[in-house]
Computed example of a mutant assay.
Amino acid sequence: MAELPTPIESYIAAYNAIDVDAMLACLADDVHFQNIAEGKVNAETRGKPEFATLARAGAAAFAARRQTVTHAITVAGRTIVEIDYTATVAADLPNGWKAGQKLAFRGASYFELSDGLISRIIDES
């Protein structure tokens, strides 16, 4: 597998550790984030403060979570990674997931870098 650019590798490690502050340290101030599920954008943020709010809510929702990169390609400051995702739900959630439920799915993430920081993330599953 291709080596990941350092900010992306650090971001995924922080995500897996449920360390939101370390995730934020990898991001540009004007970071743009989108989560796409089943072809629809179900979450979007612009800027670090909005991302932080979403990331803290996401961190609280899971007792454990892990992104494992299975493939990656980087070209001209843009990286696409295929990810195997597993998680354990911490508390009953509005979408019907129950506390203790185990999740597992595949997805892909697109990252753009600017001045050594992540400026755009698109997660799709």
Rank of each mutant, 00 (worst) to 15 (best):
F62E: 01
F62V: 03
A63R: 09
A63T: 10
A64W: 10
R66V: 05
R66P: 00
R66K: 15
Q67A: 15
V69N: 05
T70Y: 10
H71L: 12
A72E: 08
A72R: 08
I73P: 01
I73D: 11
T74D: 05
T74H: 05
V75D: 14
V75Q: 14
V75Y: 09
V75R: 15
A76F: 06
G77F: 00
R78C: 11
T79I: 07
V81L: 03
V81K: 02
E82Q: 13
I83T: 11
I83L: 13
D84H: 15
Y85D: 10
T86H: 06
T86D: 12
T88L: 12
T88Q: 14
T88A: 12
V89Q: 08
V89D: 08
A90Q: 09
A91V: 15
D92V: 02
D92K: 00
D92P: 01
D92F: 02
D92N: 10
L93C: 03
N95I: 08
N95S: 03
W97T: 03
K98D: 02
G100F: 03
Q101C: 08
Q101A: 11
K102I: 10
K102E: 14
K102V: 12
L103F: 05
L103E: 11
L103S: 10
A104S: 15
F105I: 03
R106W: 09
G107W: 13
A108G: 08
A108N: 06
A108D: 04
A108E: 04
S109F: 02
S109M: 10
Y110M: 14
Y110E: 14
F111V: 07
F111C: 07
E112K: 12
E112P: 00
L113Q: 07
L113P: 01
S114R: 11
S114L: 02
G116M: 04
L117F: 08
I118V: 09
S119Y: 01
S119G: 09
R120Y: 05
R120M: 07
R120H: 12
I122S: 01
I122W: 00
S125V: 14
S125F: 15
